[in-house]
């Protein structure tokens, strides 16, 4: 039995704004074990990032608030520990890599100092030792000429190198959990592959659990062990990565898969978008948030949130369409007619 690192139960996060209460995350649950990678997918505004920031208590303090749920990091509940304890958790137990490496580093502080700062904070190391470790870390994430680079400022680094430096900073204290919030979105495709490799290598070295937030199913297929599909702040489906790709049960997951570009498609074929707009998080329906865009919606969808239905081992879905009907519908979908490469 793998060591359980994190257990999130019924997490709900809301933003109290002038326009109304933004229900960003609504009753999300998941677990993370050592050496495991969970991918959280969903479109912009589906609550992926807010869920991650809730874990680290990094929501903008005034409007954002975790209103429900328990966030257990081992025996500690991240919702109830003091701010001081939380600072110890940040960086040391849970580290995070952000989406945009161009703006995520302090422009007027040397790269080395930004890494060493995290080390001296959480470990009993002198400044000199921390600086040496920073050089070592930069070399490990694949930055050439690290002894020279450590002395430079972010503006002297390319985007890919900045993201490597961010990873170096994140792993500097050997965290149990690494949250990567769209780590490759701002980078070009070749660099994306490299960064994913670095994340994977670091996970192997430090035996961390990784939470990978992305809207890129390609990245998920590459690295994740299990997947959680979010829509309108809710988990609509979760399961092992192969189940999600080959045995998806939720119409929204189907839509995500169908919208992927395919190399074997003819030139005239267009990408299949999910019709409609992302939901307004202030006026979410009580039921399934995907209702208005769902081609298979029925009367009960809007007002009632369907119970969790286990369709295979570790594979759950929330949907009102009966399971046999779903299987029939899925066979009809273009992307399930032949295996996705």
């Amino acid at each position: 039995m793998a060591e359980r690192l994190l257990e999130v139960k019924d997490l709900s996060t809301q933003f109290f704004t002038h326009a109304g209460i933004v229900k960003a995350v609504n009753g999300v649950s998941f677990t993370l074990d050592r050496n495991e990678t969970i991918g959280i997918v969903g479109e912009s505004g589906s609550g992926k990032t807010v869920a991650a920031l809730s874990l680290k208590r990094l929501l903008p303090a005034r409007p954002g608030q975790v209103v429900e749920g328990s966030l257990m990091l081992g025996a500690r509940n991240l919702r109830t520990i003091s701010d001081d304890e939380m600072r110890g958790v940040r960086g040391n137990d849970i580290a995070m890599i952000f989406q945009d490496p161009m703006t995520s580093l302090n422009p007027v502080m040397k790269i080395g100092k930004q890494i060493a700062e995290a080390i001296t904070l959480h470990q009993d190391k002198s400044k000199r030792e921390a600086w040496k470790m920073a050089i070592d870390l930069l070399a490990r994430v694949g930055i050439p000429d690290a002894p020279k680079r450590v002395d430079q400022y972010p503006f002297e680094f390319s985007g890919g190198m900045r993201q490597r430096a961010m990873i170096a900073m994140a792993i500097s204290c050997n965290p149990d959990i690494l949250i990567a919030d769209e780590p490759t979105t701002a980078l070009d495709v070749t660099i994306q592959a490299q960064i994913i490799d670095v994340v994977r290598e670091m996970q192997a070295q430090f035996n961390s659990g990784v939470i990978l937030i992305t809207h890129d199913l390609g990245v998920i297929a590459e690295i994740a062990d299990k997947v959680m599909v979010m829509y309108g702040g809710r988990t609509v489906e979760y399961g092992p990565v192969d189940e999600i790709f080959y045995n998806a049960h939720h119409p929204y997951t189907w839509g995500l898969l169908a919208s992927l570009p395919r190399l074997d498609a003819s030139e005239k074929e267009r990408l299949t978008p999910i019709k409609g707009q992302p939901p307004n998080l202030i006026t979410l329906p009580a039921g399934c948030p995907f209702t208005v865009r769902c081609p298979y919606r029925r009367d009960e969808c809007r007002d009632n949130w369907p119970e969790l239905e286990i369709v295979a081992a570790e594979h759950g879905v929330h949907c009102w369409v009966p399971v046999d009907e779903r299987q029939g519908l899925r066979v009809e979908l273009p992307h399930f007619k032949e295996p996705v490469a």
Binding site: K56, L58, R87, G88, V89, R90, G91, N92, A95, M96, F98, D100, T103, S104, L105, N106, P107, M109, E117, A118, L121, H122, M166, M169
Partner: peptide, 20 residues
Amino acid sequence: DFIRTARAKGLSERKVIWGH
């Protein structure tokens, strides 16, 4: 973003504000 990064490292609020 880099202030969020500084907080994510676990720096104290004082260090986040004056250091970064």
